[in-house]
């Protein structure tokens, strides 16, 4: 069982053909997730039970179940219902790519919403009080005081969540998508060199995770430039 480094190198460009789909999955799901997270966050902190309850059920379900199962429910499960096959959404829900984006986005949205909530709760209460004392309205306090600080506080955790979403895109290969993992699995079934090819795929993911990590760390440093660093 010797590892063939040449084969790893040779398979990298082949596997990289799947990179486009992986990146598209990641980008769309992450954006969809952030959108959902903001809506869910507003519902949760609205103080109205009929808004905060559905938000909490959504978060509870998507954080408590495996992503793979969520993908299967949406891709394989939804067509069980005739009204879905008849609906205008069917051309979308029939596509594995769209189903993966929906599943990954829903999953990520649940986590990001909790991260943002942590950020909002981490904002010093005294700052909103100062805003009140200055006569700022509640939306003004949220937009100009709470939100910018909460976003900074959320960035480190978001960085981890973004990388989790990147890793979760690999599950798209289970519903026939030819992302990096999908291409790698096909190559393995042809060459039967699992070590080399899967390691090559892992290297691609690691490289991309590292790039994301550095980019988000830079963003965090920029957002934190007003925080005290010694004297």
């Amino acid at each position: 069982m010797t590892l063939d480094p040449q084969l790893i190198l040779d398979s990298l460009p082949l596997i990289a053909q799947g990179l486009g789909i992986t990146l598209k999955l990641l980008l769309y799901s992450a954006l969809f997730g952030i959108g959902l997270a903001i809506i869910t966050l507003v519902m949760r902190i609205s103080g109205r039970w009929y808004l905060s309850w559905p938000a909490q059920v959504y978060i509870y379900f998507f954080r408590g179940t495996p992503i793979l199962v969520q993908i299967f429910i949406i891709y394989y499960g939804l067509p069980q219902f005739g009204f879905i096959r008849g609906s205008i959404l069917w051309p979308i829900l029939r596509e594995p790519f769209a189903c993966c984006v929906i599943a990954l986005g829903l999953n990520s949205g649940a986590y990001v919403s909790e991260i943002l909530r942590g950020g909002v709760l981490g904002v010093d209460k005294g700052l909103t009080e100062a805003g009140k004392a200055l006569g700022l309205s509640s939306p003004q306090r949220f937009i100009y005081i709470t939100a910018p600080i909460a976003i900074r506080l959320s960035l480190p955790a978001y960085s981890n969540e973004f990388i989790s979403t990147l890793k979760a895109t690999a599950l798209a290969s289970t519903v026939t998508l030819m992302d990096v993992t999908g291409v790698a699995r096909t190559l393995v079934s042809q060459t039967y060199a699992p070590y080399e090819i899967f390691i090559a795929a892992a290297i691609l993911y690691l490289a991309f995770a590292w790039i994301s990590y550095v980019a988000l760390a830079w963003l965090e440093a920029r957002a934190s430039r007003y925080v005290k660093k010694g004297n």
Partner: peptide, 22 residues
């Protein structure tokens, strides 16, 4: 409440300056 807050200034024990603004 808005009218009163516009006419009354307040200074807090912990300053409560907005840390993200100059």
């Amino acid at each position: 409440i808005d009218a009163v807050r516009r006419e009354v200034g307040m200074v807090f024990q912990n300053f409560n300056l907005f840390p993200h603004l100059t």
